[in-house]
């Protein structure tokens, strides 16, 4: 796997930093961190599906929404315990992942991206029409059971979830499966020509992504206590996820973490100056410039800097 001492040090420092954070920052900032944590989870989920394989998903909220709605409906409408509802929601989301996989067996590139966008819009419309008694229709649902009380608890809980998902995804992509998934993004037929079943590999990537999306979506809805279809199946939400991954650095797992934190804090920092949706103007502008001129993201900047430092210390 090519693990080095500094990998462990970095992850360790990251964990310690998360643990100490509530001592340092205000409750308001902590709430921002909670959102950042969930954004990291969604960004990792996107990265698992799209970052390496090159199958760009423009409809990731489709998966996240399945997780969120399933768990919310099970707990609120059917009185099922959260402990049971969340695993069921994750399984249902993975079935949703299979639905996203179907078009990926035949089409790729822009066409695949469009199908996923259509999936999301279809979900948005269907959720409002089919059984509004369960889904809450256009207004969505509120009064969903929450798992934590207060900013500190919510922060520790989401940080723990995010950390576990991040470190396991990171380990996963450092194994040979990571190489195989990268190879799919580079030349699919050559992967098949190396004796590996491309379908199996894609299925694994999509399932892993759906697993994380379902987990993130379900826990997120039990943090918020409410959900609204327009906020969930929204192109701005897609935009935030993709931009977080891209400016952090796709296919690295660390990149999405950096990107999501960077974006959340950019938004937070801009709040006093630009109170409304205008923040997206600056935010999107920065994202666009970064993406056009540093398509490999902030992570690539950091690693190349680190390599330069190492080379210097060797000399």
């Amino acid at each position: 796997m090519g693990l080095r001492w500094y990998h462990f040090t970095a992850w360790g420092l990251f964990a310690i930093g998360l643990a100490l954070l509530p001592e340092i920052v205000s409750k308001g900032t902590l709430r921002t961190f909670i959102f950042a944590n969930y954004l990291v989870i969604f960004a990792i989920s996107w990265d698992l599906l799209s970052g390496r394989t090159g199958y760009i998903s423009f409809g990731h909220p489709f998966l996240i929404g399945i997780g969120a709605y399933t768990s919310a409906i099970l707990t609120k409408r059917f009185g099922i315990d959260v402990e049971l509802a969340i695993p069921i929601a994750v399984i249902v989301t993975m079935i949703g992942g299979l639905i996203v996989l179907l078009p990926a067996l035949r089409i790729r590139g822009s066409y695949f991206a469009l199908v996923t966008l259509a999936f999301m819009e279809l979900m948005y419309q269907l959720v409002q029409v089919i059984r509004p008694d369960l889904t809450g229709g256009t207004r969505g649902m509120s009064g969903i059971q929450t798992l934590t009380r207060g900013a500190v608890n919510g922060f520790y809980f989401s940080s723990f979830l995010m950390f576990v998902i991040a470190i396991s995804s990171w380990f996963l992509l450092r194994t040979r499966i990571g190489t195989a998934l990268t190879a799919i993004g580079l030349n699919e037929s050559a992967v098949e020509g190396s004796g590996l079943s491309v379908t199996k590999l894609k299925m694994f990537a999509f399932m892993a992504s759906a697993f994380v999306a379902g987990l993130g979506g379900a826990f997120y809805v039990h943090y918020l206590g409410s959900l609204a279809p327009r906020a969930l199946f929204d192109i701005n939400f897609v935009f935030t996820i993709i931009v977080a991954v891209l400016i952090g650095g796709a296919s690295t797992i660390i990149g999405p973490i950096i990107g999501a934190l960077f974006l959340t804090f950019l938004l937070e920092y801009l709040r006093p100056y630009l109170p409304g949706a205008e923040r997206y103007f600056i935010y999107g502008g920065i994202a666009l410039l970064l993406y056009m001129y540093q398509p490999k993201g902030i992570y690539a900047l950091i690693t190349s800097g680190w390599q330069m430092l190492q080379e210097k210390s060797v000399k």
């Binding site: 760009i56 205008e278 103007f281 056009m292």
Partner: peptide, 30 residues
């Protein structure tokens, strides 16, 4: 500048649309 990298153009144009939407909110309100 993106020289035929389709996915990059699609992502960039999508980002631009969101930026412009925010710009419209900025000027004309929500």
């Amino acid at each position: 500048p993106l020289k035929g990298n389709h996915v990059a153009i699609e992502i960039s144009t999508l980002i631009l649309a969101v930026v412009l939407q925010a710009g419209v909110v900025f000027v004309f309100g929500d």
